[in-house]
């Protein structure tokens, strides 16, 4: 019985810390663990969405835990493979074009394009779009995506340059409209800079309209969608503005003031829509 009692006491002592409710696991008492909880703040980490940490919290010395950027040896990918885990291999892009039975270039059977492409993208880059029909498309979807990124980056850059040119042109037009003398002095310059602005604008627009399709398109509203809706307004206005400018200078049938007012207000709306389209990309999420 004494042996039995001894065994029971030994086992109870072994299990006590784990089995007793509301018991704290004792963390090794090395000096590395004697750091104040404020280390959380100094390490720029936090638990803003979490409940209060227990009072017993004592953090290890961050220097003992390694630093971001340190080299580390990890298990190989094969060792960390999990059933049903996502594929770790690079995305394989099938050829986007193939030579058909007639010896002509045609979209590859394996070519997968995103659903819900805008109509202008489908017109150029759809399975039977103009670019593919002419055999001008890159040989793979990867090439298309790289081309798209490059075109959209240039679209952004040229968009800013165009906005600067448009602003100058807009201000010049307002000055001319208010002062008949300036109208006579700046007429030729306004016409020349107008053609330049128009060319810059169309170049900027074509970089976006002609870009290959992205990875996915959804129907959700976003800042990019608003940017596109505003583009419908400023594209229409920009297409009409040079014609209206010529109509102001050489038109007949209506009074000069009516023609000038029409040109002025179409340009104002166009400039406002263009500026708003630019602002949506900067300011909206």
């Amino acid at each position: 019985m004494r042996r039995l009692l001894l065994l029971a006491v030994t086992l109870a002592a072994t299990t006590g810390a784990m089995a007793a409710p509301d018991t704290t696991l004792v963390v090794p008492s090395s000096p590395a663990f004697a750091v104040e909880p404020s280390v959380l703040d100094s390490a720029e980490v936090g638990f803003r969405q979490m409940t209060e940490a227990p009072d017993v919290l004592a953090l290890p010395d961050p220097s003992a835990l390694g630093r971001m950027g340190d080299a580390v040896t990890l298990p190989s990918l094969a060792e960390t493979d999990l059933p049903g885990a996502p594929d770790m291999r690079p995305v394989v892009f099938e050829p986007a074009t193939q030579v058909d039975a007639d010896g002509e270039l045609a979209p590859a059977d394996s070519l997968v394009l995103p659903a819900r492409m805008p109509f202008y993208t489908r017109m150029f880059w759809g399975r039977h779009g103009l670019i593919r029909t002419l055999g001008l498309a890159p040989s793979s979807r990867r090439g298309e995506l790289e081309l798209r990124r490059s075109m959209l980056t240039w679209h952004q850059r040229m968009g800013l340059v165009t906005w600067a040119a448009f602003t100058g042109q807009f201000v010049m037009g307002e000055i001319m409209a208010a002062d008949p003398q300036k109208r006579a002095d700046l007429g030729e310059l306004h016409r020349a800079t107008g053609y330049t602005t128009f060319a810059l604008y169309m170049g900027t627009a074509s970089l976006s309209l002609g870009a290959p399709p992205g990875r996915r398109y959804s129907n959700r509203f976003s800042s990019t969608k608003l940017h596109k809706y505003l583009a419908i307004i400023h594209f229409s206005g920009m297409a009409a503005t040079p014609l209206l400018g010529a109509w102001v200078a050489e038109g007949s049938g209506t009074s000069y003031d009516t023609r000038l007012n029409t040109h002025q207000w179409v340009t104002r709306v166009t400039y406002a829509a263009y500026s708003a389209a630019l602002a949506t990309m900067y300011l909206l999420r």
């Binding site: 409710p21 963390v27 919290l57 953090l59 990890l74 291999r89």
Partner: peptide, 30 residues
């Protein structure tokens, strides 16, 4: 496209607070 997956694999876990209550276990790990 070249590296389609983000992977985190732990190599060491240090419990800085680990408490058992009637509900179960809870705490903070580094």
């Amino acid at each position: 496209d070249d590296f389609p997956t983000i992977v985190f694999t732990s190599s060491r876990v240090v419990p800085t607070a680990w408490t058992r209550s009637a509900d179960g276990w809870s705490g903070v790990w580094q």
